[in-house]
Design a protein around this nucleic acid. Structure first.
Lengths: 349, 349
DNA sequence: CTGAAAGCGCTAACAA
DNA sequence: TTGTTAGCGCTTTCAG
């Protein structure tokens, strides 16, 4: 993975002080501007010969541009913020789902030569603050609630672009990228119906007229064709277990559960099993996300899969599009979902 | 989590242009330096009255300091790099273990008012490069192999501090933080011995005379008192499954497996179960790390727990200590481990 | 195609 | 306790 390669410092004679544009310019006998243009690939304005010479010297001296200086002098910093919610000071427990995304985002951004500032956000104002403090070219919001996003204000410069992942918020300063949650809900309902389930429970975080969970519920309920019970539960294993334990008491006739997150579904299965219920023979359970986790548990978890890498790539593409090509803020992007059948769902009893 | 709070911009009359130190200074009728001192908490050099007045104006105008400018003018940027390995351009799949740590690191650093640059590293030179490009005060290395770390060179400024997590490398420019891997191996061996296991298999990534895995093996073998088979396997579920499937063919007399990672152990269990073996009745399996995952699978996984939050906190404390107090680079830090008994280990058959 | 001047927003080192 | 003078390293004009 890492090639064995020496740092080219200490060859040009100068090893321990910062090599600046000026140094390069002097050694090459040209002005700083010419060097700057070469570094930034403005090859249109420099003769091929000079380019070649300068590039050699750059390598020879081990020149590394100062992004701080560039950021100060120019409009752009080539750095974007990846912003995640942070409950005050405590527990920046990035959710497994977000965690998976962060890696992808970093990769996509690095490919395009952008650096990433990772930062937890505790107060709404911190978004604009972070943006301005480092002169960020843009920001990616991860895992915020729509209500929170609505309170974010743009950087006063007005040039800062913001893309929110998994958001339906209609904040004018943000664009959204999300999976097709409504269709996900619908697929889940259709799957359960096809297996003969009629009396089912929907489990997920409390929702109210907006947001990811609400979308999933809408699609689910509609495709179900009938009514369904709703159980509020946080997206955690333990909440799932608690629900699973009392499910057959509180919903004696229910034969299936659709949870809005895999981790929650897995908890439900565990809770059910504790009470002696068999999954899927007595109760079917399905989740949402298709984390790796789904394959590790027994029974393996039937779920609605979303394409994380694609979501990350789309979010980055949108952001960069706005930043570099000053594109019209496109409408929100919606990514496909698909049903993944595994062992936790079966015919209604 | 997020308090409802307005951005204080647009009250001072000026809303959309950058508010600078100079603006504050003018409005307060003092010099920029005085304002600078107030902002940076150099209260010793300013009269209480002035402090109070300046602070009011700062809030009123919604001033946000430019970190780029500060980073350029001062020695320090108050930003540290969190550096993870990145297989060339492709698949920056940050491992679950590292990912869990990143959140903790960010939290610890933010508490101390440091920002985080998250960056994948594909070539050794990129470490020093990233450090210098943003004038980073330091860096945290996550999940690199000891051989890789040995090739990293310091920033030429010489002031940059580097702490490597999970490393035993003796690179003069880095300090290490890790869990007590040897003791972890020992605890595992003692646990299995106490249950009567004699013929056991050690499974983990290939190692050779150094590194985390080697340490675990040393402790394990020594406490075992006898010989043990070694199976090379990557730290993935699928490699675990493969090993589990052929375990009873290749090691017919083995009654226990110690894997150097939970995810690997869980795969081994699944592979074994596929062949009809019962865990732990026929074969006991244990892992290392104590990820949440261990509670989700059946049987639940016996493992060696390491304290991730403590590891992150220690790494940050070491780094900040070197940065701010210019402390003597302390020796490497080693954190405690403990055995967590769950359902995947039992008496030898 | 190349260069000179001016300044981005801030802080170090002195003076006063 | 406060102000002044210099830059940090780069990019943006605008002239050659």
């Amino acid at each position: 993975m890492l090639s064995t390669e020496r740092q080219p410092s200490g060859e040009g004679g100068n090893a321990s002080v910062r090599v600046t544009l000026k140094d390069i310019a002097q050694k090459a006998g040209v002005s700083m501007m010419t060097v700057s243009n070469v570094i930034n690939g403005n090859s249109a304005r420099v003769s091929p010969a000079t380019i070649e010479r300068i590039q050699r010297i750059v390598v020879e001296l081990g020149y590394v541009p100062s992004h701080s200086a560039r950021s100060l002098a120019a409009k752009s910093s080539r750095m974007v913020g990846v912003l995640v919610p942070a409950a005050d000071e405590e527990s920046l427990t990035i959710s497994p789902h977000n965690v998976a995304i962060i890696g992808q985002l970093e990769r996509e951004l690095r490919k395009r030569a952008y650096d990433v500032l990772l930062r937890g956000i505790a107060r709404p104002g911190e978004v604009a603050e972070a943006l301005r403090a480092w002169n960020l070219d843009g920001a990616l919001l991860l895992g915020f609630l729509d209500e929170e996003i609505a309170t974010f204000t743009a950087s006063s410069a007005g040039r800062t672009r913001i893309v929110a992942v998994d958001s339906y918020a209609d904040n004018p300063v943000t664009r959204g990228v999300r999976t097709d949650d409504a269709t996900g809900g619908r697929l889940a309902a259709e799957h359960l119906r096809a297996l003969g389930h009629v009396d089912v429970v929907f489990a997920g975080p409390r929702f109210a007229g907006q947001g990811v969970v609400w979308q999933r519920f809408q699609g689910f309920k509609e495709a179900l064709g009938g009514d369904c019970a709703v159980e509020a539960a946080n997206t955690t294993y333990d909440d799932g277990v608690a629900l699973g334990r009392r499910l057959r008491t509180d919903h004696p006739s229910a034969t299936a559960v659709f949870a809005t997150a895999d981790i929650l579904a897995i908890g439900v299965v565990a809770g059910l099993q504790e009470t002696g219920a068999r999954v899927p023979d007595d109760v079917s359970v399905m989740g949402f996300d298709d984390l790796d986790l789904c394959r590790y548990v027994r029974p393996t978890l039937t779920t609605i899969a979303q394409d994380l890498p694609a979501k990350a790539a789309t979010a980055v593409a949108m952001l960069i599009g706005e930043i570099e090509r000053d594109e019209e803020p496109p409408g929100p992007a919606t990514l496909d979902v698909r049903l993944v059948e595994r062992g936790s769902t079966g015919p209604a009893r």
